[in-house]
Design a protein around this nucleic acid. Sequence first.
DNA 1: GAAGTAAGCGGACTGTCAGTCCGGTTGGTC
DNA 2: GACCAACCGGACTGACAGTCCGCTTACTTC
Lengths: 187, 187
Amino acid sequence: MPERADAARNRRAVLDATERLLAEGGGDHVSLDRVAALAGVGKGTVFRRFGSRAGLLQALLEERSRELREAVAEGPPPLGPGAPVRERLLAFLDGLGAIAERNAVLFAAHEQACAEDKYADPSYRFWHAHLAGLIAAGRPDADADFLAHALLATFDGDLVRHVTTPEDPRHFTRSVQRLALAVLGSD
Amino acid sequence: MPERADAARNRRAVLDATERLLAEGGGDHVSLDRVAALAGVGKGTVFRRFGSRAGLLQALLEERSRELREAVAEGPPPLGPGAPVRERLLAFLDGLGAIAERNAVLFAAHEQACAEDKYADPSYRFWHAHLAGLIAAGRPDADADFLAHALLATFDGDLVRHVTTPEDPRHFTRSVQRLALAVLGSD
DNA sequence: GAAGTAAGCGGACTGTCAGTCCGGTTGGTC
DNA sequence: GACCAACCGGACTGACAGTCCGCTTACTTC
């Protein structure tokens, strides 16, 4: 059974309102009262739809990264399967880095809201599994699981914001790519 | 003018109470109401002394890491000045890793409370400056500033908890050390 | 197009928290 | 022992996440 028309409309309105609040005032400016008011819906609607504050941010994040996820899973190389490990890793970090740079505030708010459940988050698990797979393929002797966590830890929203400037908006991505190459080793 | 006797007593009681609450119930179990109640003081006392929730956790963290900070700044090698970069880096990560492994819950709670001010925190700035200095000395061509942030990002309390098991309590530290060596390069 | 119904809706309500404030108390000093 | 500045406690505020339930409405069926 498809979503009812008013439900779909409200879903969109809530996501848009969240986005606007994030843009205009930082992560803790986004209270669910405010989101509901700006979206023109009741608070109950926000919770029925998204479950919690974390769920709302997660949904927004999922929307921003769906394209990358699909490209990684079944798109053409170098993002998708088939390219050499090194190219695929760089392409992936380029994609995820771009999302992080454009959505650093959202990343930060999401981390804050998820707290310790971060490692259970389906998006996180997907990125981690992909990274760990690439690292394991490139360096079978390494602790791919930990290294994947370490690389993802650099995507901390506050760190991204801290190193990103208007003059050099891709600085973060390039830095992470260099780090990843170092991890993979030069052989 | 030294601290008044009752003030010093209360300060100790509050820190101890915070520690006990952290141990028994995770980071969000530690509300300042509870801390005050368990310490047997009023809530106002906690705030006058520590300023905020973040300040309280910061003070506890500072207490746990003072020894390492002093050893790094002016102790004997390999922690203190004088040892070769590589040894000094490994010794430092060994020390900080040990603290993180023993205080993962505190680390996580502190990060949560600091939120975006994390990079202004004096402890963080000290560790970062030290790491960046070592990396710059070992690899003048690298982006030491970013790499230091990246290494410190792995000290995320939840990540430490996630990879630390009773069977292998130093797993985290060894992993970070290997990562640091990779960053420094094998030349 | 009318009637039935389940899904959806809103916003008042609850419990909890960080942080403030101020009248009363007490440790240190002379 | 008397004075006072520093300190104390806990009631108070404002804001928040999350719940609940009586009302409304979009779709279905005939």
